[in-house]
């Protein structure tokens, strides 16, 4: 079935779309009610976030926009130490989209939500002019335990920085798909629920967590160093990148430090808890390749900065991502 403007009219076609695709997949009591809004239980400190997903292509090796839109929102909630609970989703579908594709995506959303332990409680669909694209906005709600303070301002000199796994997979996958290149690289899109809940369960004193998405590790750490007014020192040979991604990046001159990921986070903890934290993360789903990549330092000059010690002994300063692909060497 090809989706047309009629599917967004609010009439019978719309109901058909909702019943056949959404309600079927998002199989839970709240969504089945088809009310104007979801009424759900809750009593703690609430964490809320929203994000829009416009990835092209919408299906790619290792995932699709459905999985991505759940992971993105769930991970954002998790990074403040929240337990992710509820998700809403808004679909903006361009005329000409194939309902089979939509079905696959919605199915993938449902699977991912299950994996991440969240319930999709409400949704919306609009159809617009266009070329068959699908865009999704998700909002998420989670609960935060009283007394938990995980924030970008909490970095303290002496803390160690743990990265939950290899860099660059998602970005490389999307670029590869756009170029129609077949290789073994797959997106890392994944919910980080297991990592975070295990860390909280073990009462690790987490100072800061951040998912390493757009702009990559360099951007995320630079922002953190500025918020906390500390320097961060990384070691080049500790940064994990798979061989396939390294080769791909090498030829295209891409720097994995600036590439986006969708299932990776950094966790900053006091030095004395780093060993235990690393063990917990490595024993969690999607945390098998976690490593300690660096250390938080006292700010040496009047500007906070992140630098990486290169294998030949230099210190390269990292920054937030600039215009992609512009050379500086004269």
């Amino acid at each position: 079935m090809i989706i047309t403007m009629a599917h967004g009219s609010g009439g019978a076609f719309t109901s058909e779309l909702i019943d056949k695709i959404f309600v079927k997949e998002f199989d839970n009591e709240t969504v089945k009610e088809l009310e104007d809004c979801a009424v759900i239980p809750g009593s703690k400190k609430i964490a809320m976030t929203t994000d829009s997903f416009v990835v092209k292509p919408i299906e790619y090796p290792g995932g699709d926009i459905g999985r991505l839109c759940i992971c993105g929102t769930v991970n954002d909630l998790l990074m403040r130490g929240a337990k992710a609970k509820y998700i809403t989703c808004g679909f903006i579908i361009e005329e000409g989209a194939n309902s089979e594709t939509l079905k696959r995506i919605v199915h993938s959303m449902a699977e991912t939500a299950k994996e991440a332990g969240v319930i999709i409680v409400a949704g919306d669909t609009k159809v617009i002019d266009g070329n068959g694209g699908i865009m999704i906005n998700t909002a998420g709600v989670g609960f935060v335990e009283e007394g938990l303070d995980i924030s970008s301002r909490n970095l303290t000199p002496g803390d160690l920085v743990i990265l939950s796994g290899n860099l660059g997979d998602h970005h490389a996958t999307i670029l590869g798909s756009r170029m129609n290149i077949t290789n073994s690289i797959k997106s890392d899109n994944a919910p980080l629920t297991d990592i975070v809940s295990n860390l909280l369960k073990e009462k690790i004193n987490i100072h800061t967590m951040r998912d390493v998405t757009r702009g990559g590790l360099a951007t995320v750490l630079t922002e953190l160093s500025r918020s906390s007014r500390v320097d961060i020192k990384l070691e080049e040979d500790k940064i994990p990148v798979s061989n396939a991604v390294r080769d791909f990046c090498g030829l295209l001159g891409l720097d994995p430090l600036y590439m986006g990921n969708e299932g990776k986070c950094i966790i900053v903890v006091p030095k004395n808890e780093a060993g235990k934290a690393l063990e917990v993360i490595r024993n969690s789903k999607y945390g098998e390749n976690a490593v300690i990549i660096g250390e938080v330092k006292e700010m040496a000059e009047d500007k906070a900065c992140v630098y990486i010690e290169t294998e030949i002994g230099g210190k390269r300063i990292l920054d937030v991502l600039q215009d992609e692909g512009l050379p500086r060497i004269c």
């Binding site: 670029l175 756009r178 170029m179 129609n180 290149i181 791909f248 030829l251 295209l252 001159g253 891409l254 992609e324 692909g325 512009l326 050379p327």
Partner: peptide, 16 residues
């Protein structure tokens, strides 16, 4: 490598 470079040129991936 050549396929990758050709594709990257066509799609202007990390190019200037």
């Amino acid at each position: 490598s050549l396929d990758l470079l050709k594709a990257a040129l066509k799609e202007h991936i990390n190019s200037y």
